[in-house]
Simulated assay, not measured.
Amino acid sequence: MEKAAENVEIAVLGGVGFNSYREFESQPVHTPYGGITTYFTTIRRKRVAVIPRHAGENHIPPHRINYRANIWAVHAIGAKRIISTNSVGSMRGHPVGSFVVLGDFIDFTRNRPSTFYDDKTVHVDLSEPYCPEIRTALRCALEKKGLSYTEGIYACTEGPRFETRAEIRMMSQFADVVGMTGVPEVILAKELSLCYASLAIVTNQACGLTTQKLTADEVTEVVGKAQDSIFEIISDTVENLKEARSCRCRFAKEGACL
C-alpha cells in the first residue's frame, strides 16, 4: 500500500471547484489497477487530496475513467472520506446552476468494473450508499451560503453520449438527475469501508425537457461559473466534519463476504 501522505483526512473526487489543482503538491500513487496522480492541499487546517477524474493528456471520457485506481488511491493514502462532485442533467426541472445532495442511485452502466473482488463473493451493503455525516455537512454548507439545493436520486448511464428522449422518460420514473461518473465510485468506496457523498450541480435539462440541443459546451460553461461556489461549499464541509467517524460506513463490509 502507498504510504499515507501527511495524515490526509478527506479526498475530493472530480476536481470541480479546484481549477488550480495543478498548482498543488502532487504525488504519484501506485495501485493494483494502475498509477494516478494525486494533488494535496490544506483546507481549513485539514489535509485534503484532490483526484481529478478526467485528468490526462486528453480529457478522459466517463466510460474510460479508472474508477478502481482512483478509489484505491484514496484508501492507499489513508483518507477515510470522499466528497465527490458531479455534473448532472435534471429530469425534474431543477434550475440550471442549482445543487443536488444525492441520497440514492440507480445504475444503468454496462461495461465498468464495479468491484475490487473478482475472485471471491462480497455482497456489500448499499442500503445507505451516501454517507449521512458528509451529506449533513454538505446541506449545512449550502444553507450557510444561501444556495438553492434539493435532495434526490441519481441515475448513472454509461456515456459518453447523452441519453435519448425515451431513456429520460424511463429513468425519470425512478430518479431525479442523470450523470455519467457517480457509479461505480460509490460502490467501490463502500467495499473499502470509506465514507462517500456527492455534491451534484445541475448543468442542463435532460433530453426531451427542452427544445434546445444538448451540448458539452453548456456543461462546461455552468461548471465554470460555479467553481468558486463549489470550492466554498466543499471548504465549509471539510471544516464541519469531525475527525472521528460515527456513521455506519466503516462497517459496510461486515457480514458481506461468503
Rank of each mutant, 00 (worst) to 15 (best):
Tyr154Arg: 03
Arg22Asp: 07
Phe174Ala: 15
Glu163Phe: 06
Asn240His: 08
Phe231Gly: 15
Glu191Pro: 06
His63Tyr: 15
Phe105Tyr: 14
Ile43Trp: 11
Ile201Asp: 07
Cys257Leu: 06
Glu191Gln: 01
Asp236Arg: 08
Glu232Thr: 12
Leu102Ser: 03
Phe231Met: 11
Glu25Trp: 11
Thr157Pro: 12
Ile168Asp: 00
Pro113Ala: 03
Glu6Thr: 11
Phe40Tyr: 09
His94Val: 10
Pro61Val: 05
Tyr117Asn: 14
Ile153Pro: 00
Thr115Leu: 02
Leu199Arg: 08
Asp125Tyr: 15
His54Arg: 03
Lys190Glu: 01
Ala73Lys: 08
Ala76Val: 08
Ala197Asn: 08
Lys253Asn: 11
Val29Gln: 07
Ala244Cys: 11
Arg68Phe: 04
Ala252Glu: 01
Pro61His: 06
Gly255Tyr: 10
Leu241Ala: 00
Val100Ala: 00
Asp118Pro: 09
Pro129Gln: 01
Val183Tyr: 13
Ile134Glu: 06
Ala141Phe: 05
Glu158Lys: 08
Arg68Glu: 02
Asn86Tyr: 07
Glu232Asn: 12
Cys249Leu: 10
Arg110Val: 15
Pro160Lys: 05
Asn240Asp: 14
Glu185Cys: 02
Ala226Arg: 02
Asp118Met: 12
Gly89Ser: 01
Phe116Glu: 00
Tyr21Ser: 10
Arg53Ala: 07
Val74Asp: 03
Gly224Met: 09
Gly97Lys: 09
